[in-house]
Amino acid sequence: MFFLFPLLMGALMLIPGWIYFIVLLYFCWITVPNIFYGFRSQNDLMFTAMMPVSKKDMVKARISVIVILELLHIVIAMLYGLITTRLYTNIDYYFFKPSPGFWGLCFVMLAIFNLTLIPMYYKTAYKFGSALIVSITSAMLFAVAAQWLGIQNTKMSEIFNVTVGDHMALHSSILIAGIAIFIAFTWIAYRMAFKRFLKVEIQ
């Protein structure tokens, strides 16, 4: 089900001129709480702790699930974005248009989400309420700030929404920087989570 979700949510990219940050935020709003709730209600922590797996692998496995789903969401949304830009050629974008630079910003948004969610969650590896509120708020604040700048700053609006083709180098570098930040933040989140998990008492 969670693997089908990117296909469904990605289709929201077909709404013309929408706030496309929301497409990825659905992952944070719906998928993550459901996964974590599943872990808790099924006693997954105790179950995994009984298996012959190291604590490092236990943390790695859960983070991998999140990262794989994030990548699926973003890559599928990108593909839908390509369709959108070809489908609606005469739209004046008020919010960000799907562009490499925009996807770079999305990677940064998810990076912030991971960096707040994962270490906070691993204080207990069980309670996720406050970790979820803080991480969703941080990711949304970033999205709102970026989008606000994209509307207020005429030059930024031009580069992101009108003259994408003329600024391909800039767009590519934003995308690469976004991916680099995503990798770096997620790695830091994993290291912090592992350190905290070693102190967790599995009850």
Partner: peptide, 19 residues
């Protein structure tokens, strides 16, 4: 730990997984 858990069997009364 990991190696030994291959050789240990558990049963914890009152704890259920994936019921």
């Amino acid at each position: 730990e990991t190696e030994l858990k291959q050789e240990i069997g558990f049963a914890f009364g009152g704890i259920d997984f994936y019921t």
